[in-house]
């Protein structure tokens, strides 16, 4: 995307001169620029819906415990405070040490137009280091260490970047990095769901009831399909080294479709990756534009997703 300075706009030149923005490639209008040295910027735990009395017993079992995000200094047992890419703090989303548990942080916006929407982030993913208390070295996915590949890499399940959008029709654009399958075998590929996410209303209407550790985005592993080919990321050998990955994901809300996903030096064409809409209409959601990130463990070991910074831009 590099173009000669003479062909760049003044706005582009000013962005390029700002170290915090020059690492991104925004569309015309920047909606969101989140640097987690200055708070959580509206990223908050997703929680299922509840009744008019505020009775949290009415929240769906599988949407009760997505865990509060943390402002993390990336602090580890061996090196102390690793710090983030920008300053000391990153946003951390953590699972419980329970196979199938998912941590989710969501950011809630609405749309003032239609067109391309781009989510950019510097992120990384890690598994909790082993300790006597967590017994991670003996949990599913663990294996031999060869001084290069670390067994903890096979104990990281998946992370997901996704949306919840409604323009009258509700739909989710979703991209998931499936590091391992549910048997803890390395997959290292991007996948998308072929079905829309089950909603609290579908449970309320008696259509579906999911257990606490169900995959809320699409519960059946068979409903996830790969796109773009395998892609190995930089876990970097042990659970306490943090290498930041550039992610740029473009969707188009004028066509309710995916466009492309760039992850470091690879651009995955997503124009043919389908976006399954809901058949039914939902009220109270006009112009909904939510982004969420999630992390899902496939073993009884905590998994973490870290966001150093996020930029969301649009062409409207």
């Amino acid at each position: 995307m590099t173009e000669p300075a003479s062909e760049r706009s003044l706005a582009a030149e000013l962005r390029r001169a700002d170290p915090a923005l020059s690492r991104f490639n925004p569309l015309d209008r920047i909606l969101v620029h989140d640097d987690f040295n200055t708070g959580t910027h509206g990223w908050i735990e997703l929680l299922g819906n509840y009744d008019g009395h505020g009775n949290l017993d009415t929240v769906d079992d599988h949407m009760r415990d997505f865990r509060p995000p943390q402002l993390s200094s990336c602090n580890f047992f061996d090196v102390g405070t690793h710090g983030a890419m920008s300053g000391t703090y990153a946003l951390k989303v953590a699972t419980r040490p329970l196979a199938g548990h998912t941590g989710v942080a969501i950011r809630r916006l609405t749309m003032a137009g239609r067109g391309r929407v781009q989510f950019e982030a510097y992120l990384t993913f890690k598994t909790e280091a082993a300790s006597e208390e967590n017994q991670a070295a003996g949990k599913a996915g663990a294996g031999p260490w060869d001084a290069n590949l670390h067994p903890s890499e096979q104990q990281f399940g998946a992370f997901t970047i996704a949306t919840d959008i409604c323009d009258g029709v509700r739909y989710h654009c979703v991209a998931r990095y499936l590091n391992t399958d549910v048997e803890n075998g390395l997959r290292r590929e991007w996948v998308y769901p072929t079905v829309p996410e089950p909603t609290p209303r579908e449970h309320f209407e008696g259509k579906i009831k999911l257990p606490p550790t169900a995959d809320f985005t699409a519960p059946d592993p068979g409903d996830w399909k790969p796109f773009g080919g395998p892609q190995e990321l930089c876990y970097n050998e042990v659970p306490t080294k943090v290498n930041w990955h550039y992610v740029r994901w473009v969707i188009d809300t004028s066509t309710r479709s995916n466009v492309e996903l760039q992850v470091n030096d690879t651009v995955h064409d997503m124009r043919d990756v389908p976006v399954p809409p809901y058949d039914e209409e939902y009220g109270s959601l006009q112009n909904l534009l939510n982004f969420y990130v999630s992390v899902r463990t496939h073993t009884d070991v905590r998994n973490f997703l870290y966001l150093d910074s996020v930029l969301i831009s649009v062409d409207w």
């Binding site: 943390q70 993390s72 200094s73 951390k92």
Partner: peptide
């Protein structure tokens, strides 16, 4: 409770 980072 789950570990929570509070260094900030």
């Amino acid at each position: 409770t789950e570990p929570y980072e509070a260094a900030w």
